[in-house]
Design a binder for these strands. Sequence first.
DNA 1: GTGATATAGACAACAGTTGGACAGCTGTTG
DNA 2: CAACAGCTGTCCAACTGTTGTCTATATCAC
Lengths: 319, 319
Amino acid sequence: MSLSPREVEPRHPVRIVVQRTGLSADLLRAWEKRYQVVKPHRSPGGQRYYSDIDVNRLRLLQRAVRAGRAISRIAGLSIDELERLVREDDEQGIQREATPATDVAAGAPELFLSNALIATEQLDARALENTLRQAAMRLSADHLLDEVISPLLFTIGSLWHAGRLRPTNEHLATQVIRRVLGWITEVGTSDPRAPAILVATPSGQNHELGAMLVAATASQYGWRVLYLGANLPSDDIAAAAVQARADVVALSIVFPTDDSALPGELLRLKKALPPGVAITVGGSGASSYKSAFEAVGAQYLPGLGQLRRWLRNSHPTPV
Amino acid sequence: MSLSPREVEPRHPVRIVVQRTGLSADLLRAWEKRYQVVKPHRSPGGQRYYSDIDVNRLRLLQRAVRAGRAISRIAGLSIDELERLVREDDEQGIQREATPATDVAAGAPELFLSNALIATEQLDARALENTLRQAAMRLSADHLLDEVISPLLFTIGSLWHAGRLRPTNEHLATQVIRRVLGWITEVGTSDPRAPAILVATPSGQNHELGAMLVAATASQYGWRVLYLGANLPSDDIAAAAVQARADVVALSIVFPTDDSALPGELLRLKKALPPGVAITVGGSGASSYKSAFEAVGAQYLPGLGQLRRWLRNSHPTPV
DNA sequence: GTGATATAGACAACAGTTGGACAGCTGTTG
DNA sequence: CAACAGCTGTCCAACTGTTGTCTATATCAC
């Protein structure tokens, strides 16, 4: 394995590393001072900058410590040795030490995030679900989505792209996140007078987690949510919107970002919908189709923040 | 057998040994003091560190003790002698008796089914979920799966084929059924000693509900279930099976029924799995690949009934 | 200037060690 | 059969080692 310059370049200031590892800044410095676990590059002013390799190393150390290793004993190990050790502990551990139990006291989103990542890596669905459930209890739904689930999805996505995560891990995480999001959505109103939003993903779009985030958010804001999942033809979306008397149709677009059929689909949707029904579009891949949105008067809402504001304005019923 | 440096190196602090052996820290020290069962290395600060060999020895001792041996008598035995002893005791051990699953009084499955269908047609997620939840309360899990959910899936599938149901309806039902099945599966064991089954769908197979039925069933029968969802490459399935120490890999095959790549995938899976791990295959589309199953020694189980029988025979664990 | 980050040292919480006590059993002995 | 002694797992108290966090103060970057 050769190192790409990207990986050795010291690019990450401390706060990023905190976010990605779940270790506190204090602890990072303590480990560095006491055990020389990493030697981050220093800016002229003395600020630390960590490379991808450093971050990776820290994550491995953290996992090993979590598994019961003493930091003093493992600090000197190479990445390879650490990987072997972590793997061994994952496989040999008779009973998974209850990670959540120790974390109950802490309410920091980063901790939930890093626990969730570790559970994902260990293919431990139960631990992952427990972590997210705890996070759900401790954080507001908005914070849960913004600071745990969204970053988790993002990180899993990038780890997966980098080849550091197998599809199995990604599937498992999808599975569990789906359940947790469903749980959030489920709590929502059944009040038939509440405004209704239909959430789906247009034809060709297979990533449904973004749509689930939308559904969960809307449900939090008092909307009646009709969640239909991924990859639906415009006509069917429109028919369902009519049948359920939806006020809004929300679409999530992630990938692909160059589907030439999509603008046409949007147009068909617009035509098939009753005049009063609004269309909103969001998701990380939505920006590529901006002009198509304008053509049908769809509201482009990148990010959950914008979505929230829009939901609030368009129907001011906070929960 | 030569000893690698890895095995004699004192790498494990007590916590790890406790995890791996199930013995308490107190007991470890008591055994050491009284019978010198092991002589762990000491750190400068006096902390104990155990080698792989120590851990192995302790495991054997623990098994022998659990089988009824007196620690004082076996403390001095060599590893070889201990292994022989443990094997002997295992063979003499009494078989656990299988308890047949109890049948709960059956309600009226047809009524649930028709209500569920109506809710599906009306795009009423809440009503559908309530119906299934009621059915789950009233029927045994087996009956729920056999007489409500399976027929519901089948009916929805055929209505959809006949053009009498829109994809929206199907998606909505999928959504809800997924949640209900997840709920059944979730209740399952977390006992790490329970036999483990990995459930997934091979590459190219996108219908995951069959797999979810398998997962729910196995969980009912006391198995530890690792559910990974649809469309996974063999290599990843195998890797996950190793990591989770699965005893069985269960695949569900629905559509397509003429994927020429599938036999090859099965072969790769078989090769990548450890020898002891069984493969089972089921699902409505599985019959098309029978010869491929034979080639890899996979168990062909059409229908949940066969699956249940197989699960029971292969590991008679009462629930 | 303000908010983030740096250092050094203090500190509290926790984990691990030792020696000893103790209670539940088991098998032996009078 | 009762008393006894040995075995065995657990618990405790007092102490030490290890580790994460906190404080005070200074510096950096925008």
